[in-house]
Nucleic acid binder design. Structure first.
Lengths: 156, 156
DNA sequence: GTAAAATAGACAACCAAGTTGTCCATAAGG
DNA sequence: CCTTATGGACAACTTGGTTGTCTATTTTAC
């Protein structure tokens, strides 16, 4: 009987798996006309969602301060992925919406993610991959969103 | 027959799993006398290793510039986890070594990682957990180290 | 109906971790 | 010996985060 693998291997492998998928996503995204979208931007654009949001709200969704959310929106706006407009019903608020360019990036990301999952399925077998996903679902909180990825590595 | 899960769930779950383990590690480490060690520091200390290293070497191991490695060493030195001494055989080089405090942090980390793995084993069953680890080993590069975690999230 | 409180966003100063570029001291090799 | 390579330090800049302060607007409460 072989002994258990050291405990530190598990988080490392989880991270390496994550990183491989994200790196391949962005390499492919670069090839498909989105060379300057960064890992974080994808999450932020997902959090912006189809109906738009505000800086304060986005901050809440992502688990960062409204100022940090505002700065990220600045960047995304400069890159042409989102645009801001004033809320006619409340002139304090600025509604942040995805541009067509942003929507394109999101749709291409979804297709690439599906392709990458097919690669894993091909290598591991669909049964094993489903078991892996199921086990991860068991061990992690049920809600996808609110992953507060931005700034996680700095934040402790 | 149920359809495949969306491709983007897999990287998210991998990351959430990683994050949960690392967050729990650091919560426990804080309780055990290491409140200010950050996720990155653990990886850096692992890379420093028992024999010590230099800034240039550490940068190579971690995949960052020597300047970045130097700054991280500054931080770790200020926190008391490593110390620098001049190499008697080459007065250009400064040898970076773990202090007893650093070694303590590393040993406690290993024990906590093993505990956390036992929790996963308890919930999923040892067989499923081993299958999960085996599948991740299949999908990720074989070498643990050289994970160039520091600065990854900024870097593309 | 107006005064007080809450909210949205902007701006500034700062931190952490990374980058490139420059420079100096020491070591190694022609 | 003189030239080149190496290790480390310093500076300026980039990103993504933080707090704190400030203004404009909207909501609430009397």
């Amino acid at each position: 009987m072989s002994s258990d693998p050291p405990g530190f291997e598990l988080p490392l492998r989880l991270f390496m798996g994550f990183r491989m998928i994200i790196d391949e996503l962005h390499a492919e995204l670069a090839r498909q006309g989105h060379p300057d979208v960064r890992p974080m931007h994808g999450f932020v654009m997902q959090a912006v969602g189809p109906h738009g949001t505000t800086a304060v709200d986005l901050g809440r969704t992502l688990g960062v301060s409204k100022q940090a959310a505002g700065k990220t929106i600045d960047t995304l706006e400069r890159l042409g992925y989102v645009e801001r407009s004033t809320d006619p019903a409340d002139s304090r608020r600025k509604i942040v919406k995805l541009t067509p360019h942003g929507i394109d990036a999101l749709m291409k990301s979804a297709a690439i993610f599906d392709d990458l999952r097919r690669t894993w399925s091909h290598t591991l077998g669909e049964d094993r991959l489903r078991a892996l996903e199921e086990d991860l679902r068991t061990m992690t909180p049920p809600d996808f969103f609110r992953l507060d990825i931005p700034g996680w590595f700095g934040g402790l």
